[in-house]
Amino acid sequence: MAKIFLTAFLSPALSIFLLTVMATDVFATQAVPKKNITLKNTSCIQCHEAQNRSLIKDWQNSAHATAEPVVDCVSCHGSLHSNMASTARHDDSCTGCHGGEKAPVAHSYASSKHGSLMRIEKNTYDWNQPFILANYRTPGCGYCHMYQSNHNVSSTVRHELMNGKTDNSEIEKVQDKMRQACQTCHAPRYISLLFSNGEAMLEIARKKVREAKAVIDQAENHFNENQLAPAKQQFKKMQQHLRNVHLGIGHQSPDYQWWHGQPALDGDLLRIKDSIGELQRLKAINESRSDAVSD
């Protein structure tokens, strides 16, 4: 009698109980890591690759993944699984590596209207919201550079900013990516005109740099390294001022487009001409003297 009872009732019940416990346990470890567990990048990827393969792939295609040291999940999200998304969405998680608040890349944003509003309002936003459909009144770094959780940040940045080489083939790709974020607030014509005017403004800045480069290159034939040192020193500043124009356009900071950009380049150019012009003038004086001696 007891045997019948055991086989008929208890063993299925026990099996179900055991299976349920085991299954729950398995689900539990797969779903969310415990809040106080410190995570490493590899453990994030294992799980999130299964959940959202393209997100991991985007990150792998970004400059962050190949940077030295690598900028991985925990670099921005922290290593505790609670509030991971909102932690990374704050601008501080970007500026920490990108030179701090005073660096041109961050300061050009901070001095834009978007940046001003962010300073006033950041504590009033719900940072648990995704970067989509104007969930934030003003965009921070991530809203534009990681719109719709795009983890390939490099797809929103022109490589010219990093390596100084102009590559016109990437202009359209980057603009298309950016447009998605801009158009949640701004009109299509406004965005297109800002893009095209920005390209024109940047090209003007490049013209100044190329003019200075041509002057220095030409002078290489006549003067030595020591004589050209001041002009070359000035040319280095010019690179930064060109970058300022670029950042000013990208982040819509009038101050970086103008005071830290275009008129600064004007000053660089005339100082380079002045330095090399003086060398040429002294050379002419010397030559006239040796002519006088030989006469």
């Binding site: 003019e211 040429q280 002419a284 004086i285 006239s288």
Partner: peptide, 25 residues
């Protein structure tokens, strides 16, 4: 420069200053 008697030998800065990609643009 004023000691140079022959004006032809004096340096003329116009070529440097009035030319160049941006300046002409």
């Amino acid at each position: 420069e004023n000691n140079i008697k022959n004006d032809q030998q004096k340096y003329a800065p116009e070529k440097l200053w009035k030319n160049g990609e941006y300046t002409l643009y």
